[in-house]
Amino acid sequence: YVVTDGSDSDPGSKNDGIIENIILEKQEDGEWYFHIKYQNKYGWGQVAHKKFLVDVTPPEDFILGVDNGGDDTNPTPKLKFSTKDKTSGISHYFVKIGEETIKVSPEEASEGYYRLSVLTPAEYFVNLAAVDMAGNTASSSVNFIVDPLKAPIITDIPKILNKKEELVIRGTSFYSRVTVKINISKAGEDPIEAIVTTDDEGNWSYFHKEKLEKGNYEVWAKIVDKRGAQSLDSTRHLVAVVSSSIICAYGWWIVILLLLIIVFLVLYIIYQRSRFKEEKTRIRKENDEVKNKLSRIFAALREEVDELIELADKKPGYSEPERKIKERLRESLDISEEFIAKEVADVDKEIKLKEKGGEK
Score class of each variant (00 low, 15 high):
Tyr1Leu: 11
Gly6Met: 06
Ser9Leu: 05
Pro11Arg: 08
Pro11Tyr: 08
Pro11Trp: 08
Lys14Ser: 13
Lys14Val: 14
Ile19Thr: 02
His35Ala: 04
His35Ile: 02
Tyr38Arg: 10
Tyr38Trp: 09
Tyr42Leu: 15
Trp44Pro: 02
Val47Ile: 09
Pro58His: 08
Leu64Ala: 05
Val66Met: 05
Asn68Phe: 02
Gly70Pro: 03
Asn74Ala: 07
Ile90Trp: 04
Tyr93Ser: 04
Val95Cys: 07
Lys96Leu: 02
Lys96Ser: 09
Glu100Ala: 12
Glu108Gly: 05
Tyr114Asn: 04
Arg115Phe: 06
Phe125Arg: 14
Met133Val: 08
Ala134Met: 06
Pro152Asp: 05
Ile154Tyr: 06
Asp156Tyr: 13
Ile160Cys: 01
Glu165Met: 02
Val168Lys: 12
Val168Asp: 06
Ser173Cys: 09
Phe174Ile: 01
Val180Trp: 11
Ile182His: 04
Glu189Val: 00
Pro191His: 01
Ile195Glu: 13
Val196Leu: 07
Thr197Ile: 14
Asp199Arg: 11
Asp200Asn: 15
His208Val: 05
Glu210Tyr: 00
Leu212Thr: 02
Tyr217Asp: 03
Tyr217Met: 05
Trp220Thr: 01
Trp220Gln: 05
Ala221Ser: 13
Asp233Met: 11
Leu238Thr: 12
Ser244Asn: 14
Trp252Ser: 13
Trp253Tyr: 10
Ile256Phe: 08
Ile269Lys: 15
Glu278His: 09
Glu278Pro: 01
Lys285Gln: 14
Glu286Cys: 00
Asn292Glu: 10
Leu294Trp: 02
Ala299Trp: 03
Glu303His: 11
Glu310Gln: 14
Asp313Pro: 09
Glu320Tyr: 08
Phe339Glu: 14
Asp348Leu: 04
Lys349Asp: 13
Ile351Asp: 02
Leu353Asn: 15
Glu355Leu: 13
